[in-house]
Design a protein around this nucleic acid. Structure first.
Lengths: 287, 287
DNA sequence: GCTCTGTCATACCCGGTGGGTATCACCGGG
DNA sequence: CCCGGTGATACCCACCGGGTATGACAGAGC
């Protein structure tokens, strides 16, 4: 009577994101009329207007925005349930490989810490197999939410820890990474304002969920690409201290005095109850 | 193909909780055979055994336990989406009452703080209407999760803040509440061990999700009932300092030296994005 | 003012499937 | 040995989710 089906949520989220029944239907792999009807039924069952149909496209009501947000969370939770169940069951059958943990890590970050963690955990008795899942910038949250990952290394203040349990692992300062020959590379320290308006070196912009902050700098989504652009003297970037590990000869690193410290956490969905996960967390906090 | 329907989750959770197809079907208001079939389809679609059918009842596999936990979370998120959408939409229509917030509070706790909070918030410009929802012992978590409430006052270490965002509001010590005439009532302070084994006064046991911790004391789920039992000299209980507000003449309060402090938080689902909620939180932290 | 275009809604039909009833297969206990 | 209670199977029906064709309507252009 009043329990939403995930199908309805999927439909509504598609329409709410596209703000267009036709495109939403196409994305869902169905025809437009049944989609229209489904949304109408949904509105009737909820007793609430979700969409304002102005003859030119569609707009969300307040209730619609609410359902978009909450519905996304619910869909994530549902697909997480399916994924984690599959993984838990798949591990049931083969020989002895009891459990498997999927650890999401921002690609290229925390190399050293990650190495130590994996080695230390592998040495634990009864350790589960850990699959390392490289993730895009700030994508770890979504991966934990929809079950692609069980646990993640996150970097405050870039990642939001909201809604997860976490333990602090490491704090480090930040450095500016400049072309080796640049005048500022000779400085002992720099401030954020120093690097944010170097006339010939616009600050690189990282992609977040596919979009880029505004600015003059080049759009970056790959660390190697960025390293090359810096080496070529085209841009400058700000990184945690540990980024020194992968710097090239053509790079120079200068500590930033006023950049917020980067805190690496290990984070996991708050409701997790898994022995393997507990072991990994224990190992991590003991490093 | 691989997306779980909430109907399937509901069915599975019912079976997993009852460990009995017949009873689960009854609870779901349907016949047993279609339920059996639905679970089989679910297992086939997930490619995972969820239940071990021993001719006498049913047991969960590892994957089944996983789906029970994750499925409950997903179902909570889904019903939360429906409830919050209904509320957001219902508030759209009537006159000016823009938003409404539901605040879950453990019945009878934090009277004074709650009063101050509500008064202060009501005085804010553009304040939403706040509905106070009394909740049972430690029930606030569930209420936030399934959308019965938007925000809650919680008391660490009794409530778990896992999975929520929260702000600390108040810290207080704990007191032992004894019958006024009892010898120990004359003491200036007591320790936990003092009150946990008073020969003639067993410690009262509060219900948590309908179950009681083991022990000799009476089972309590109502504060008035407990107050009466203490006044009658039948039991002793431990409370936060602020409980002094409702003590009777027949009660005596003695500070506990080694009881963990009780920290009152205001907590809300981590993904909430509501102006009204933000205002309430801001008001609360400024108290 | 007309059409034309792009939008969402309506009308109608069909097949899949969720649900019901009746029954079977199995096992443990008297 | 049979009986009670379990979950599984067989079969049927009705509902509804989805498709196609079409309508209603508003805005843009001439």
């Amino acid at each position: 009577m009043d329990t939403l089906e995930t199908r309805e949520l999927r439909y509504f989220v598609a329409v709410a994101e596209e703000l267009h029944f036709g495109r939403a239907a196409e994305r869902l792999g169905m025809a437009q009329p049944p989609l229209s009807r489904a949304i109408q039924q949904l509105e009737r069952r909820l007793g609430v207007r979700l969409l304002m149909r102005n003859r030119r496209g569609v707009a969300l009501t307040g209730a619609g925005e609410m359902l978009l947000h909450e519905g996304r969370a619910a869909l994530d939770a549902t697909t997480a349930a399916a994924r984690r169940t599959r993984r838990a069951g798949g591990a049931d059958r083969p020989d002895g490989s009891r459990n498997r943990l999927v650890l999401a890590v921002k690609a290229g970050a925390s190399h050293e810490l990650l190495h130590k963690l994996l080695d230390a955990y592998a040495a634990e008795p009864g350790a589960a197999e850990v699959e390392v899942l490289p993730s895009g910038t700030c994508e770890q949250e979504g991966m934990l939410r929809d079950g692609r990952a069980d646990v993640a290394l996150m970097h405050a203040p870039f990642n939001s820890l909201a809604g997860f349990d976490s333990e602090e692992l490491m704090t480090e300062g930040q450095i500016a990474v400049l072309p080796a020959g640049h005048p500022l590379a000779a400085q002992k320290t720099l401030s954020l304002s120093d690097v944010s308006d170097i006339p010939d070196l616009p600050l690189a912009r990282w992609s977040r969920h596919g979009t880029y902050p505004p600015g003059p700098g080049p759009e970056i989504h790959d660390q190697t690409q960025l390293a090359q652009l810096i080496a070529l003297g085209r841009t400058v970037a700000v990184f945690p201290d540990s980024a020194r590990a992968w710097l090239w000869a053509e790079h120079a690193a200068v500590p930033l005095t006023d950049a917020p410290p980067v805190v690496t956490h290990i984070a996991w969905p708050a409701h997790s109850r898994s022995l393997a996960l507990a072991g990994l967390i224990r190992t991590a906090t003991r490093l």
